[in-house]
Amino acid sequence: MSTIEMTLAGFGGQGLLFAGKMMAYAGLIDGKEVSWMPSYGPEMRGGTASCSVVVSDTAIGSPIVTEPDVLIAMNRPSFLKFIDAVKPGGTVIIDSTMVEDRPERTDINFFAVPATDIAEENGLKGLANVILVSKLNKELGIVSDESLKAAVPKCVSLRHQDMLEYNKQALEIGAQQ
């Protein structure tokens, strides 16, 4: 791997920005170059929230990803908006609880994970984002598993330290998908 460019997108509140931060932090712990860039402005209000994450062995140019190697889509508008931008040979993971569509493209690796349902079944409401990130890392090994685990306490705010254990559970469940 030299450079992996990721787009994570969904509704505001689904935790896509948080999930992106986890990947970036894990990359940082692995000693890689990383960047994290949110979309901002009116589009963040109630609509689709997305962020770009780049994990690389070399210095990162633009932190804004326009042709991602990886797309995680947690709602239908995000899936429709970004599916065609994914590089041929890229990886697409959707939360199939939220997105019924399937890609017409055949030149990508596609995974449908009912992450929201899985999270609820396991008493981990709101952690579908973490399940998807874990699934992604299982498939592509972008960062080490240890680093991904170690990134959790770095990303969870002080106010939400009680969520640490749930996040770790979500990582484990995601890796089993």
Partner: peptide, 10 residues
């Protein structure tokens, strides 16, 4: 600019 201002890096 908005890129350098909004992005997160170590």
């Amino acid at each position: 600019d908005g890129m350098i201002g909004q992005m997160m890096e170590p």
